[in-house]
Amino acid sequence: MSKVLIVYASLTGNTEEIAELIAEGIRAAGSEAVLKMVEDCNAAEFLNYDALMLGAYTWGDGELPDEFIDFIEEMEELDLKGRTAAAFGSGDTGYRIYCGAVDQLESKLEELGAVLAQPSLKIEYGPNQEEKGLCREFGVMFIQSLGVAT
């Protein structure tokens, strides 16, 4: 059984809901999912898990939330080469850059050597009924990719 750490930042609860739904998918696929808010987590904890996911809401004009700034700096000290990862988050298409924080998380993971198992999941605001299923499927697909990507 694989252990997946899901680290997220959520302001309104939308990204938290996405994280919880993804975790449901991971568990349905027979693996363990541990959810932590970014401010309650240390980047070095990644090394205790088989795979990791990062999730964030997009702040301002495509920026990472402040809660992720120190965490990203901690990540700079890690070697994530070959580790399986994925990114997800919520955003608002009313802004010039939709889900820019998710793109930044993906870029940082790649820069540190992680293997992105699948394209990121981007949800406008909170997930509707159909998107809830997509979130769960994102978790299932992530677990299925572990045998291929690692």
Rank of each mutant, 00 (worst) to 15 (best):
G62A: 10
S107D: 12
K3S: 15
K81H: 08
G60R: 07
V38A: 09
N48L: 10
I72T: 11
L80T: 02
K122S: 05
M1D: 13
E20C: 00
T93A: 07
E76N: 10
V148F: 14
A43D: 07
L146A: 05
F142K: 00
E63T: 02
E16Y: 00
V115P: 01
G82T: 12
G60D: 06
A56C: 14
K122M: 10
K3H: 11
L121K: 09
M1T: 13
A19D: 11
I26S: 00
N42R: 13
F46W: 14
E74T: 02
A51K: 07
A149K: 02
C41W: 08
I22A: 14
R96N: 08
R96G: 03
E77Q: 14
D50P: 02
G126K: 01
E67W: 04
I72S: 11
N42D: 10
A149D: 14
N48K: 15
A29E: 11
G139K: 08
A44W: 07
C99I: 10
E24R: 01
Q104L: 11
E111F: 14
T58D: 11
E124V: 05
G60A: 06
N48M: 08
L21M: 05
F88H: 00
D79C: 07
I6D: 06
N14H: 12
A33I: 04
D61Q: 14
R136K: 15
E131M: 07
D40N: 00
G126L: 05
E45A: 14
L146R: 03
I97Y: 09
S107T: 06
E131H: 05
T58G: 02
L78Q: 10
A149P: 03
E45G: 04
Q118E: 01
K122I: 04
E45Y: 05
P127T: 06
